[in-house]
Design a protein around this nucleic acid. Structure first.
Lengths: 125, 125
DNA sequence: CTATTATATAGTGATATTGTAATATTGCAG
DNA sequence: CTGCAATATTACAATATCACTATATAATAG
C-alpha cells in the first residue's frame, strides 16, 4: 500500500470556505474580455455603449461579461435614462490589477511583442 | 435592424493579447485548492508532503494543482532528495492575495460564518 | 397605442476544467 | 539489480464556461 496519506474526514471546513469565495472572485477576473472591461472601468464609469465602442465588442458580449462582474459584486450598474453606467465598486480592484501587472512585468511570459505591449502599458501608468 | 454595432475586423490585436495573459494568470488562482496552496506557500517553502498534511489533501490533488501554478510560473519546484520543495516565485503574489483579502473585507460576501473567518484571518495578519 | 434605442437574458453546440482513480517516474537503500 | 517512498502524470466522465444567435425587457418619443 504505497503513499497511504489521504483526506481526513470531518474537519471544520470553515477554513475551506473562504478560499472558495476568493477563488470565485479570481474566476470573475479570469477572462480577457472582463480584464479589458475592468481596465476601462477603473479609469472611470462607462456606459455599455461606451464600452462597446472603446473595446470594439458586440453588445451581448459586453452585457454578458458585465453581468459576471456584477454578480460577483465587482462592478455596480446605475440606470441613466436608456443607458446603464457601470462603475467599479472598490478602488482596490485597480490596485489588484496594478499588482498583477507588476508581477507580469517582473518575470512571467516574455514573448517579444507582448513585452513591448507591457512596457507601453507601464509608460501609460 | 436594431443595434447594428458589431465587432470591427482587422484591429491590431496586440491590445487584446496582454489581457489574455492576465486572464490566464488569474485563472490559475481561480481554484479553492490553489488558493489554499498559495496561502501556505507565501509563508515559506513547503514540500508536497507538508502541503498534503497541512491542507489535508491527497497526493495527486496537491501535485496536480501545484502543476497548474508551476506551468503558470507562479511557483517553482526544487528537488530535495525524494521530496520536492515548492516556493512562490514572486513575493508580489503575497501582496496580490493580501489586496484580494482587503477587497473581501470591504464589502464582498458577508455570510456570518464567513465574516468571522475573514476577521480571524485579518488578525493573523 | 407603436416604434426605436439601449441593455439584458436565454438557448445552444463546442471546448475547457473538475474530481477521482489508476499508473508512471524518480531517487534512495540495501 | 530489487523494493519502496515521494512525487508526477494520465485517463475519463461530469460539469462549467465559452462564443454566438435570437429574443426579451426597459425607457423614451411620437
Amino acid at each position: 500500500m504505497p503513499t497511504p496519506r489521504g483526506r481526513r474526514a470531518g474537519e471544520p471546513a470553515a477554513a475551506a470556505e473562504l478560499p472558495a469565495f476568493k477563488a470565485q472572485f479570481f474566476r470573475a477576473l479570469a477572462h480577457p474580455t472582463r480584464i479589458r472591461l475592468l481596465e476601462a472601468l477603473v479609469r472611470g464609469g462607462r456606459t455599455v455603449q461606451e464600452l462597446q465602442d472603446a473595446l470594439t465588442l458586440d453588445q451581448p458580449t459586453v452585457s454578458q461579461q458585465l453581468a459576471v462582474l456584477r454578480h460577483q459584486g465587482i462592478v455596480a450598474a446605475q440606470k441613466e435614462g436608456l443607458s446603464v453606467r457601470y462603475t467599479v465598486r472598490d478602488p482596490l480592484v485597480g490596485e489588484l490589477l496594478e499588482v498583477a501587472r507588476r508581477i507580469f512585468n517582473n518575470h512571467l511570459v516574455t514573448t517579444s511583442g507582448l513585452l513591448r505591449e507591457l512596457q507601453r502599458e507601464v509608460r501609460r501608468g
